[in-house]
Design a protein around this nucleic acid. Structure first.
Length: 878
RNA sequence: GCGAAAGUGGCGGAAUUGGCAGACGCACCAGACUUAGGAUCUGGCGGGUAAAACCGUGGGGGUUCGAGUCCCCCCUUUCGCACCA
């Protein structure tokens, strides 16, 4: 190969670009981008009749904001490495990409730039698709899905009608979360724990009364919870978050009749409790300030009304201040009483700010002795504290007086006292028996409540899927007939953030005739939450061209469940719980056979810089475009894999990309010189024995294959995969030097054969060719452009994407020698190197012959212990 | 407050089961090749010492021949949940 020295000076400068030893990512990547573009079928999944086993790898689809950010690049680099690896493992790989393209930013852009949302969105998609192709991601674009196009969203509408038929979509007036900045309603899942909007973290969500469409996700609460146990390959963190979100809680409802006058709003208060066994200790009832009965009870007392109003205001203020957890408890005595159905006792009715309206019934029985919050409240307002579960700690003898310092006693491992006929019963049994008792006597029953609420999907926005419903004065709510789908989103609509749904101001859209009676009717003008779009898009990928149905059950049956889903942990609740819900409904509709959409989930860490999330305001944004222009796509992608394990946050360091770029270029130069090595050293005769350097390199190759193969199958620590590749290349350089001398040392040039000390048998050319071949194969998932270029350089004509992944030979990967540390009385005194297959006796002999060991044991009585790699040899010397 | 994860050189990070702590890379230092070097190649690089010894994985105990790894207590950071009755 051309020696860099001969062409390096003035003459070489002009031809620098053409020199094969100079890595130029731009020209290489451009060349392959063009070639791949000419072969659109390259990355296409084979049909479900393929003889290959299927593998569905999916990355979360992006919102087309207009530019990829590093988080995208990282996400897709992981998915692409996996997709390429699985192709090389012989699988039929489905690796699609699409656009979650409805949503508010398009409307904001429309307002800011006077650009129609559709135009803005489709333009962004074009830009981002170009960026993705520039990165070399192996997407099957024949499966592309764009959620804002009628070909897709008509099926949202179709699903909505099916949900409606099944009673899973319903309309109700309710208090809803309203973000003043979004000018629309938010689902519970879209309200942060701070009480602010998920898109506007500084804007407190307001409560408004609106008529909204809801999806009955709570019907599936139990199954959504239970089936988490069938997802062993989901991160525990995500499963825990979902469990908490669903918040299943077993308990009982108990009715307390109002004492004396029946209230105008009813004559009883129903409370929810998980501890019905403590009901004899209930010394008050507590209502949430917003509880509808509250105003009835104190309607004629303006002073009390004002105090309750204060309680509510205080909560709002606390939320605004970000004080979520530790709001101080306050309450108001209504002066009314209710009757405990178990013992007939009158208990005062209070209003308390620590009772939540939307959990349980919005009313509780307060048992200060056995609930921490009730205890705190009772202490503060001097309410009775009555012990009804004998408080004992582990080891306490039974009997004796209840111990005030042990209160509140919240354990269920003790016996009831002061509880009438129930006294003496273990707490756990009492919960069951007392619920039964309540049910038999008609004042209560066992029940299960959930934190999870039904999913409100109505949005008062333009850029979303129109909800296919019509309101007729005569017929009421009338679904749009299936044959009339899609309900097309009108264009040229004036978009503002004020005055309700923009579609409401488009008469030709809103005014329709009733499908049932033909009379004048009004169309629903709200659109769907965009999380509807992303709840089932991955099914559509299997055949996005179908025009008569959303999916083909057989094709879906072939591809599903998704083998590997990759995305950010920020979707642990919203997207991933909605998707699971949607799949279960689809299964009940007979559309799909799988109960869960995703077999394995991987949540990658964020890309940060300087310890903070990248953001324009911090000015620490790294643009993928700039990185690609500077270092090429291969180096950029590879850096995102190398800089940190994929599940951890990646702290971006510009110098780090430089390092990976150097590595990539080092690989290029090596193969450029050695694809057809012409140094005489390679042609030296050999007698079949390999030189130690050759053996070393061969071992490195097989160890690298082993490591990377295992990493793909398990831990996914691609940072170490890349580092193994780097080490391997370092070995190749060392080997090259051993064969032909240091190219940069003229004194050594032309040295033929193996260096002194070897057995004089340089490895054959074939070994060099084989090693390079394997190196390129292993590079393919991480740096596809470079790998393809080198593949060609090696004279390979087969398609690298489908070339078989290299196998490793465990024998060749094994170390030939093992180092032992030798301890003398607990301290390491020496190290010896012994053949890997040496017997214990041989090791012992060698150890005792070691000079340092001899010195250490001279004149002593002792025990020696030698250790390494799990082998332990004890030698006792007297 | 509750729950989970993490804490290793100047930095990003290695070290599947307890077995040479710091792989690989960055930064830095030295050398080579150079008209030049922000290119390339070679070597060095936890502290400490002339060299050893010795000390080193947030802190303190413990188990073990041997602990970054296992056990107990504490500290810090990040994330999730935060009155869920």
């Amino acid at each position: 190969m051309a020696d860099s020295k001969t062409s390096s000076s003035d003459a070489g400068r002009a031809e620098a670009v053409a020199r094969p030893d100079r890595y130029d990512p731009q020209s290489i990547e451009q060349k392959w981008t063009e070639r791949w573009a000419q072969n659109p079928a390259l990355y296409c999944a084979e049909p479900s009749t393929s003889a290959r086993k299927k593998y569905y790898v999916l990355e979360m689809l992006p919102y087309p904001s207009g530019a990829l950010h590093m988080g995208h690049v990282r996400n897709y680099a992981i998915g692409d490495a996996l997709a390429r690896y699985m192709w090389m493992q012989g699988y039929n790989v489905l690796h699609p990409m699409g656009w979650d393209s409805f949503g508010l930013p398009a409307e904001n852009a429309a307002i800011a730039n006077q650009t129609p949302p559709r135009e803005w969105t489709l333009g962004n998609i074009e830009k981002m698709k170009r960026q993705m192709n520039r990165m070399g991601f192996s997407y099957d674009w024949s499966k592309e899905v764009t959620t804002c196009l009628p070909e897709y969203y008509r099926w949202n509408q179709w699903f909505f009608l099916k949900f409606y038929e099944r009673g899973l979509a319903y309309r109700k007036k309710s208090k809803v979360n309203w973000c003043p900045k979004c000018a629309t309603v938010l689902a519970n899942e879209q309200v942060l724990s701070s009480g602010c909007c998920w898109r506007h973290e500084d804007t407190v969500v307001e409560q408004r009364e609106l008529e909204q469409w809801f999806l009955r996700i709570t019907d599936y609460a139990d199954e959504l919870l239970r089936d988490l146990d069938n997802l062993p390959d989901w991160p525990d963190k995500v499963k825990t978050m979902q469990r908490n979100w669903i918040g299943r809680s077993e308990g009982a409802l108990v009715d307390f009749n109002l004492d004396g006058l029946a209230g105008p709003g009813g004559d009883k208060i129903t409370v929810f409790t998980t501890r019905i066994d403590t009901i004899y200790g209930a010394t008050s009832l507590q209502l949430a300030p917003e509880h509808p009965l509250v105003t009835d009870l104190i309607a004629n007392d303006p002073g009390l009304l004002a105090k309750v109003e204060d309680l509510m205001q205080e909560q709002v203020r606390a939320k605004e201040a970000g004080d979520v957890g530790g709001i101080e408890k306050h309450g108001v005595d209504t002066g009314h009483f209710a009757i405990n159905p178990f013992n007939g006792e009158r208990v005062p009715i209070w209003v308390a700010n620590y009772v939540l309206l939307d959990y349980g019934t919005g009313a509780i029985m307060s048992v200060p002795a056995h609930d921490e919050r009730d205890y705190e409240f009772a202490k503060k307002f001097d309410l009775d504290i009555r012990v009804v579960i004998y408080p004992r700690r582990e080891g306490d003898a039974p009997g004796g007086e209840p111990n005030e310092p042990l209160l509140p006693f919240v354990e269920t491992n003790s016996l009831l006292i002061n509880s009438g006929q129930w006294s003496g019963m273990p707490s756990g049994d009492a919960i069951e028996k007392m619920s039964q008792h309540a049910e038999e006597h008609g004042f209560g029953k066992a029940t299960v409540t959930y934190r999870l609420k039904d999913w409100g999907i109505s949005r008062q926005r333009y850029w979303g899927t129109p909800i296919p419903m019509i309101y007729c004065a005569g017929c009421g709510i009338v679904p749009v007939p299936e044959k009339d789908l899609p309900v097309l989103l009108p264009e040229n609509v004036e978009i503002t953030l004020a005055g309700g749904s923009p579609l409401g101001k488009v008469p030709e859209f809103a005014n329709v005739s009733c499908p049932q009676c033909g009379g004048a009717a009004r169309r629903e003008t709200d659109t769907m939450d965009t999380f509807v779009d992303s709840s089932w898009y991955f099914y559509r990928y299997t055949d996005p061209t179908l025009s008569d149905k959303p999916l083909d059950s057989d094709i879906v049956g072939y591809w599903f469940p998704i083998d590997q889903y990759i995305g950010g942990v920020e979707h642990a609740i919203l997207h991933l719980i909605y998707s699971r819900f949607w799949t279960k409904v689809m299964r009940d509709m007979g559309l799909v056979r799988n109960a869960e959409p995703v077999e394995r989930l991987f949540t990658q860490g964020m890309v940060i810089k300087g310890g903070a999330k990248m953001s324009k305001s911090l000015g620490n944004v790294v643009s993928p475009d700039e990185m690609v222009a500077r270092y090429g796509a291969d180096a950029t992608r590879m850096y995102t894999l190398f800089a940190a394990p994929p599940d951890r946050d990646l702290d971006w360091q510009d110098a780090g990309v430089e390092g990976v770029s150097r590595f990539v270029s080092r690989v290029y130069r090596f193969v450029a010189r050695n694809a057809k090595p012409d140094h005489p050293g390679w042609n030296a005769s050999h007698d079949g024995e390999m030189s130690p350097a050759a053996r070393r390199m061969q071992r490195a190759v097989h160890q690298t294959i082993k490591h990377i193969t295992e990493d793909f199958g398990g831990r996914w620590h691609f940072n170490t995969s890349v580092s193994f590749l780097m080490s391997l290349v370092n070995e190749l350089y060392a080997y090259e030097e051993s064969v032909q001398g240091d190219k940069n040392h003229p004194s050594k040039q032309g040295v033929s054969g193996a260096p002194a000390g070897s057995d004089g048998a340089p490895a054959p050319l074939a070994l060099m060719a084989e090693v390079q071949r394997k190196l390129v194969l292993m590079l393919a998932p991480f740096a596809p452009y470079l790998a393809h270029e080198l593949w060609e350089m090696l004279g390979e004509t087969s398609d690298l994407l489908r070339a078989p992944w290299p196998q490793y030979d465990p024998e060749l990967a094994k170390e030939e020698e093992v180092e032992y540390a030798i301890q003398v009385n607990g301290k390491i005194r020496s190290r010896i190197v012994v053949a890997a297959d040496a017997t214990e006796d041989q090791v012992r002999e060698r150890a005792l012959a070691d000079e340092k060991v001899k010195a250490a044991i001279a004149g002593k009585e002792m025990v020696k212990v030698m250790v390494v790699k799990g082998r332990l040899v004890n030698i006792v010397v007297k």
